[in-house]
Design a protein around this nucleic acid. Structure first.
Lengths: 211, 211, 211, 211
DNA sequence: AATGAATGAGACTTCATTCAT
DNA sequence: AATGAATGAAGTCTCATTCAT
């Protein structure tokens, strides 16, 4: 970012531009956007755009950053997360785990379907984006959540490779969902996918080898 | 494809162009390639390129097609596949399944790491490619393989949602691997990922709910 | 036209581009022009061209439009037209008609010879241009003029097929002139053609069958 | 033309290429044709095309030449022409003239509408073609025909400017017809145009000033 | 003679970025 | 600070013509 938006005016401008970028991405796809489109959508001139952002990529980066924070925030507000944060004892047994996994996956689907597919488009193009921060946030969040469970139930024999499991699960779930939504002809219901993913994840997290 | 390469000469040209496309993709990324680059890499003129392909996209499509066939071929040559095709009885029990899953995942990693990351780059950009055929091939292959196992072991109570499981597994495994390889700072070994994925997949396929 | 040239600067640019197009057409022929040529002639970059016009055709269209208006304006300023517009009584008898027809044909020749043959080149290529508007303007003008005469002299028995006569005359005169000018080796003088055309037109308009 | 087609094979090839050119022109328009299209339509290779013609323009030139001869031939076969050639006395008075003019104009319309608009397209593009020869042929023909009439009827006072009149008439008639056919929305019938043109021409040829 | 693969100059158009006002 | 006109490099694709076989 070229300038630190200290003044109110500037922050408004920056926000407007980021939001315009979001709109353009949903409407034109990540590589359909142009600086003119974004400026026009934001109701400002291209010149102003370059006053606040070094180049087109910085804009997208800022958008991704913003969304990452939004997601982190939304995650933190999930019931289970708040409970965990509050030090509450998680629902015991596999049933509780399954329930929470299920909720998170539903949350993921809701996210990917929200904002007119903005997240979907961004996840699709994650490889040309600085998505790492987002994934980090997600993984960290899941990690925190999982740790609570495992500290609780298997504290005697802690899982060594938790970070590996989290990595695998996060990516498996996320990209399976994205691929599913992207499918034109859906040969299976979202509910089936949700249940399947839940099954897989719970099995993996609580499986024999986990102990 | 604009012309049916009947003559020997033509097929060479087509192959050279596709191979040049492959090279350019690995060197410049999928959306860094240009028709001139490809032609130059193939050692011919742009005109020749358009003599054999309608446009740039057709070239990429041809490349994807070719690779899809290569992969299908390679899969068919995997020991377990040949045995299955030969009607051989699969190794019994979970151990046999685990072993095969492990082998397939290793095969996948080998594939993604081969060709200087060509596959990696293509999978990354699957959303802007006619990847469906490839995924179809892969899923079909896995489906065939899985069926053998399940017909064998659970023929009394066949798995209703096999296609859902295959979809989930194929995407989970593939994109987790891609994400792993794409990670600049690897915090875990490929072996850990391989074992983790194997664990997850086997658990999912042979879990309680599968019966 | 891509942008409404509201600002002074814009209108200058648009005019410069249209004028450059005119120059290129006279120098290179209608299908010898290129966007780069035009931009260069106008002293701007190709990009600017596309800032104001959708494509090459739009430019030519704008040129034709502009010229059409110029011609219409010039016609309106012809003595006979002003008189007619003012409701003045046209010179009586065939002599008056002949005189006016003669003047219009001379005007036509002057037009086709002006601007370094710009009009000539455009009329030659009328079939690939939106020339309809121009012809409409011309025909309408002639129609108006003619009507005055005929209302005056033959009001008892108005000419039923006036529009047919105008169509025939307009095209006959215009293309005969164009063909004449295009002839490399002129075997007859422009004056002879002018008189011949006048003769033919007057004869046709005031002939027996006209009554 | 690069080679004189002495052998039978060659002449066939040349004819096939010219005919293919004709077909392409009617189907694609004069500036839609490509050498490949023509060669393919003729059922030969591009190379062969260049064996017999220097370049694309030579091909079109040959086509125009061929058509010019066909037209000349067709004209010569018109009843009035045969009679004139046979030294027969033309039908006396204006009635005979009118009748013949009418027939020629109908012949012209038939020609322009024949061959799927081939002639139409060529006349439209006369300016980029070596049409002069054709016009010469037509004018000469008309000149011959007219001369018979005028020698007969006005031999005492021969028309000085016959060539001017012929030039004017030929172009007037031809381009008025072309323009008429080209009109998408026909606001008048072909018959009206034919009669109008006849009227004009006859009036011009037999008018006061002609004597 | 015939073929048709190969050539490559050149046309059109886009769009990130700059800079004078 | 804001504007938006101007830039021009770069990319895609066409097609007349040549030349090795």
């Amino acid at each position: 970012m070229r300038k630190k938006p200290k003044q109110k005016r500037s922050r408004q401008m920056v926000d407007a531009l980021i939001e315009a970028t979001a709109k353009c991405v949903t409407e034109l796809g990540l590589d359909g956007i142009t600086t003119h489109h974004i400026a026009e959508t934001a109701g400002v001139s291209v010149g102003s755009l370059y006053q606040y952002f070094d180049d087109k990529d910085s804009l997208v980066e800022a958008l991704v950053d913003k969304l990452a924070n939004e997601i982190a925030e939304a995650l933190r507000r999930l019931p289970m997360m708040e409970q965990a944060a509050a030090g509450a004892e998680p629902a015991g047994g596999t049933a509780g785990l399954r329930n929470n996994v299920h909720l998170i996956i539903q949350f993921g689907f809701a996210l990917l379907n929200s904002r007119d597919g903005l997240y979907l488009e961004l996840v699709r193009n994650w490889h040309s984006l600085p998505t790492d921060r987002v994934m980090d946030i997600l993984q960290q969040t899941f990690m925190d959540l999982s740790r609570v469970y495992f500290l609780k139930h298997y504290q005697n024999t802690p899982i060594e490779d938790l970070h590996v499991r989290i990595f695998i699960i996060a990516n498996s779930v996320m990209f399976t969902m994205v691929r599913y939504i992207g499918q034109p002809r859906m040969m299976m219901s979202q509910d089936e996918i949700t249940r399947g993913l839940t099954e897989m994840v719970v099995g993996y997290l609580s499986g024999e080898a986990a102990r």
